[in-house]
Design a protein around this nucleic acid. Structure first.
Lengths: 131, 131
DNA sequence: CGGTATCCCTCCCGATACTG
DNA sequence: CAGTATCGGGAGGGATACCG
């Protein structure tokens, strides 16, 4: 039932592009990670992920709810209370996200090293007769 | 040697943030995927991934080379020829990328469904007394 | 408390033109 | 062929103020 083999990420309309841009979003992954083990309220989320502006968090949340990855439950109380939790679908996203996290844990050092080396080269060589 | 357990993605300086933003980049993943099985020249890459402007591809490639994920080899010929290939480090990135691809292959349908349902709700209910 | 409305500003992206 | 230079538009991110 998977149509995995006919996926072509080079097509602009490819679904993987959609997911990729989602993951690349500044706050999406943080929200999902924050909800990994707990149900959180709006301001709790804000505190946990360090989101500066409520607008941004609100946007992120709405997009996640729209895509069925997070569910929103509001209580008719005073003061109002709203809880966000991962849906089953949202929980499945934890796997690929963690694959990325694991890669970062293992290889970021290499990337940083490579970057330093490249920057040194630029500073000395390509800087062009700067001494 | 891995320091995986002390990784906190909620820290702004966390390495996983760096990798995430990399993956979210518009062209980075496409370039890596394009170089998966072959060595390609600049214009071949452009054709394959459908990058419209050379500037953008150039930027992407420079960043990838800087981070040690792609290597660049130029030949002193006329006309000039430049080949790009994945480094060993870059090849390791294929794993997490593929995890995301696989997720997309399996679950994008669900996301699209959820999105449609949510949009219908908005159109009928939240549109607000539109009839 | 849980958002929305508004404004600003930066960064990314893209097209075009030009150079080695 | 393989880029760089320049310019411009648009989306996204962020701070602040305000509303239910």
């Amino acid at each position: 039932m998977e149509t995995e083999e006919c996926y072509d990420p080079f097509q602009p309309n490819c679904p993987s592009r959609l997911i990729l841009s989602r993951i690349g979003d500044r706050w999406t992954v943080l929200v999902i990670l924050a909800l990994r083990h707990e149900v959180l309220r709006f301001s709790e989320l804000r505190t946990k992920i360090g989101s500066p502006a409520p607008k941004v968090l609100s946007q992120t949340l709405q997009a996640l709810v729209r895509d069925g990855l997070v569910s929103r439950q509001a209580y008719a109380e005073v003061p109002p209370r709203v809880e966000y939790r991962l849906t089953d679908l949202g929980r499945t996203l934890l796997e690929p996200i963690d694959a990325v996290r694991r890669w970062a844990a293992v290889h970021t050092g290499d990337v940083l090293d490579a970057r330093e080396r490249a920057d040194e080269l630029v500073a000395s060589g390509a800087g062009g007769a700067d001494r």
